[in-house]
Structure formats: C-alpha cells, structure tokens
C-alpha cells in the first residue's frame, strides 16, 4: 500500500508515451473521495482526467466505447460502495452494465482490462489515489490503446 508507483510516470513505456485515462466519478462518494485525496495531499499521476456524473448509474456503455475510440488508453468508472448509493441502487445498475461493457471490450479485442469499475467512498482518499496509481501502471503495462495509431503500436 506504499506510494512507490507515484514517482515514475513517464519513466517507462518508451518513446515518451503516457497513458491517457478518463475517469467517471459519481458526485457523492468517489468524487468526494477524489477531493479528499487532494485535501490529504495523496499524490498520484496526472494521467487521469475526471468527468463528474451524479451517479455511476448515469454512465452509459457508449461513453466508455467513445472514450476508447477517441484514443483513451483506459477508462475508469467509480461509484459508491454497494449499499451506499446516494440514489439507493444506481451503482448496482452500473455494475451490471459495466460488466456487460467489459465483455464487449473483450469481444472487440480491446481487452476488458482497459476498463475498470471501482467503489470508492467519500472517506477513501488514499484508496482513490492508490486506484489512480495502480490503474495508470496497469494501463502502462498494457501499452497504448490498439485502436489508435499513437504510441509505438502501428496497427
């Protein structure tokens, strides 16, 4: 659980390629967790750009697909822990939907690992930072999005 991963974005992956990641965070838990990471000054790589939605249940599969199509190397969806949803069950629906989306990514040859669904509460600032570190590293290992011509991937 240390923060060793944090200091080396850009130092691996060759040719200066940096993973580009989009994260959807629900307003009530995980966006608050992201803010708490900030208040607590937990450091994580700047590769992730957060889009705030009110509930993880708002996230449509097409958001994930569109992000990957436009060149995102990874997509993260975060919501309240099961049972904690501000809207009672939006996160349960997100879970079903994102499982389906992951299957689809696998079928399309993009790979389910480029997408992740994670529950992060408003008091889990460290978990938010750790998830960002870890997911960035994972995407770094996977390399650039195969749908793009970017990075070292040629086709």
């Amino acid at each position: 659980m240390s923060s060793e991963g944090e200091k080396k974005p850009g130092s691996t992956g060759g040719e200066g390629w940096e993973p580009n990641i989009v994260a959807f965070c629900c307003n009530w838990c995980s966006y608050a967790g992201a803010d708490l990471a900030g208040v607590s000054r937990f450091q994580y790589p700047p590769n992730i750009k957060v889009i705030r939605v009110m509930c993880s249940g708002r996230v449509e599969p097409q958001f994930v697909l569109r992000a990957l199509e436009l060149g995102a190397d990874g997509v993260l969806i975060t919501g309240c822990h099961i049972g904690d949803c501000h809207y009672l069950s939006g996160n349960e629906k997100a879970e079903v939907r994102m499982k389906m989306t992951a299957d689809l990514l696998e079928m399309l040859g993009i790979g389910r690992d480029r997408m992740r669904l994670e529950w992060i509460s408003a008091s889990e600032g460290e978990k938010f930072a750790e998830t960002m570190r870890e997911f960035t590293e994972r995407i770094r290992e996977l390399g650039p999005n195969p749908l793009t011509n970017g990075g070292e991937d040629s086709g």
Binding site: K49, I51, V53, M54, G57, F63, R66, A67, A72, S89
Partner: peptide, 30 residues
Amino acid sequence: CGTCVATCCNRAITLRHFRSEQIMQMIQAA
C-alpha cells in the same frame, strides 16, 4: 441521478445538465 437514461435502450431519455452530448464533448476534450 440519470440511471434511467443509461437504462433506456432506445435513448429516449435525456438527463438535463448531464446530457449525453455534453459528456461526449467532455470526453473528446479530455
């Protein structure tokens, strides 16, 4: 919350202020 929007299989529902095209534009900008 917008859960109905993501549930609707015919894209008949719009959540104002978090419309799909708004989020799509943010994704593109990101």
